[in-house]
Design a protein around this nucleic acid. Structure first.
Lengths: 252, 252
DNA sequence: GTAATAGTGTCTTTAAGACACTATGTA
DNA sequence: TACATAGTGTCTTAAAGACACTATTAC
């Protein structure tokens, strides 16, 4: 972090006289794209806006940044207070700051994305009565092209999104598509023990295309990122697959 | 961007009564890591701080965000006013917001990185009298590990950096290392026409390791990202190499 | 001529795709 | 038993590394 240094009397005097209100300052908010993967699609947590602006539209969970709180802490607080979740994998995504993105006042939104396995997220949504939904994302662009992403309700109807949240969703999808190959993010979307098939289905849903079964297995096993648990899934209607777990080796 | 929608009288009344000053707001600054590659190393533009805090230490060029200015526009303004540069490749990097990172007040720094070829940057530094220097970066970590990065003056002495700017430099190096393989960022660091050797030296400097000469040539040419200009470099003391230029094909 | 790097051709190695085949559970 | 998916083995293909060899300029 900041290197050790001495504070001089001169500097102390400067700091005492510093007036932070001399310039108009924007508000800073933190928005969280909480994602999961299920049924071959990416899903995101959205909340219905009860207040202006964009009342009735759907928005990412978010909050204004508190004055003595780090950005990461604000993202964790949003997940805790809006979804009742703790210890979820979270990473900063991008900062959105177009002057017109919020009609109230100038708001800089520091966006985060978070990944969680579907069972926990469904439980969180079910335990809430404040209009949270899990929306299926409709990614219309291929590869890592990027662009806004639409959200669909359970009937496949497009949900009207608030602010620039379609852009933020698009950035989150683009990010996890890009990171999937070299970062262990698929594991965040699965329970502790999982068959390799489920890991492949998660990758396919994120990438939006089918993957070769054999080379996927080989690639994952060769990298040593997963280790067999010795257990097998039961009651699957066919040969039960071996269950694996994420191996936290520091290998690349 | 934001979807088309109608504004109701109800909402207009809400907006008229909205008081943006109800909550304390942090300041928002934009800092730019302007990078180039020369002599097998990465270099960054730094300025000596004339004022408190961190007077005498070295800092990234930056500015507080103006209230009606986009983040991208602020980054472009910083490059224009602090280095006299326009049209430089610039991309958002990461947002730094630890509560203690600036002793004056809470400052959220939206960091950008920019890439330029060394001749233009040297010209910009030489034409300034306000204490700008080109500092060589000392990247001590391998691969995409990440972490703070030190800056050295022309004698190889460590320059004391202001705020958390060693962290920001580290994030910029990590980012360009990661993007080098799939994004055409090497070209931003070279003149319009260049021999393949220079492109390889740029890649090697960024990655911090030697690359196989033959497969580098094959890889670059096979991707069709460069096209021969038909000209050759002269006066190089050996067989003159063909000069290539970046081909702006939309191919992946 | 020598020195130095450009550039080509070929062999080997490695990772990924294709695909056949065997294994083992449920119904 | 049939069925469905798990898992193995092998062939092919594509990309990268290794390396030998030729090409062309400055000196």
């Amino acid at each position: 972090m900041t290197a050790k240094r001495t504070t001089t009397d001169d500097e102390l005097a400067f700091l005492a006289s510093y007036d932070a209100t001399r310039f108009p300052r924007p508000s800073v908010a933190v928005d969280v794209v909480l994602l999961t993967v299920r049924d071959g699609a990416i899903w995101a947590l959205l909340g219905r806006r009860d207040d202006h602006p964009h009342r009735g539209r759907w928005a990412l969970p978010g909050s204004f940044l508190r004055i003595e709180e780090s950005l990461d802490a604000a993202a964790a607080r949003v997940l805790r207070t809006k979804a009742g979740l703790r210890g979820v994998f979270t990473e900063q995504l991008y900062t959105f700051g177009s002057p017109g993105r919020d009609p109230r006042t100038r708001v800089i939104a520091v966006a985060y994305y978070a990944l969680i396995e579907p069972a926990s997220l469904e439980r969180a949504v079910a335990s809430r009565t404040d209009g949270l939904i899990l929306a299926r994302l409709d990614v219309s662009w291929p590869g890592e092209t990027g662009g806004p992403v639409a959200a669909l309700d359970s009937s496949g109807i497009h949900l009207p999104l608030a602010f620039d949240h379609a852009e933020i969703l698009g950035m989150a999808v683009k990010r996890i598509r890009g990171k999937l190959d070299y970062a262990p993010i698929g594991f965040e979307l699965l329970p502790a023990a999982f068959p390799l098939r489920d890991l492949r289905l998660v990758h396919e849903a994120i990438l939006g295309r089918a993957l070769n079964k054999d080379s996927f297995r080989r690639r994952i096993l060769d990298r040593g990122l997963v280790v067999p648990t010795g257990e097998r899934a039961a009651g699957v209607g066919h040969r039960p697959p071996e269950l694996y777990r994420f191996s936290d080796r520091s290998a690349t």
